[in-house]
Structure formats: C-alpha cells, structure tokens
C-alpha cells in the first residue's frame, strides 16, 4: 500500500478501536446491574455489547496489521 516501512492505517484504526472497546466495555460491565438510565432500550445494555464488538474488531486489526509483521 504505502511506503514499505509505513505502519498500515489499519493498525492505527485497530489500536484506536481496541482502546475504545476496552473503555466502553468496562463502563458497560460496571453498570450491568440496572438499565442504562435516561436512554430508550436501556435494558439491552448496548454499551456492553458494542464495547465488546469494538474490542474484538480492534484486537483483530491490531494483531493482523501489527508493525513488523512480514
């Protein structure tokens, strides 16, 4: 894609999503006991599931496009 030694843009994206996934999943997990206040469909705890999704996608891209990978 880019200069041979350039870190792939997908690595940057993966790393950012990984960090977001950890933050949002952790926050959601800490508040699993009750529906998220003030939002419609709060009982679905979307933050937990979305955070987990971000973590998985981010983890995959971070690993698959890590710097130095042949």
């Amino acid at each position: 894609m880019e200069h041979d030694k350039t870190i792939s843009v997908w690595f940057f994206i993966g790393a950012l999503l990984l960090v977001y996934g950890v933050l949002i999943l952790a926050y959601g997990a800490m508040h699993m006991g009750a529906p998220t206040p003030g939002v419609v469909l709060g009982e679905l705890h979307v933050d937990t599931w979305w955070g987990a999704l971000l973590l998985v996608i981010g983890g995959f891209y971070t690993f698959a496009f890590r710097p130095g990978k042949g």
Binding site: Y20, I24, Y27, P37, V39, V40, D47, W50
Partner: peptide, 12 residues
C-alpha cells in the same frame, strides 16, 4: 443519539 446512547457510546 441521546435517545439510545448512554455514557461511552455518546462519546463515540
């Protein structure tokens, strides 16, 4: 966005 997203997702 505010209707469905609580803290964390709102920031996203």
């Amino acid at each position: 966005l505010a209707r469905y997203c609580g803290p964390g997702l709102l920031g996203l």
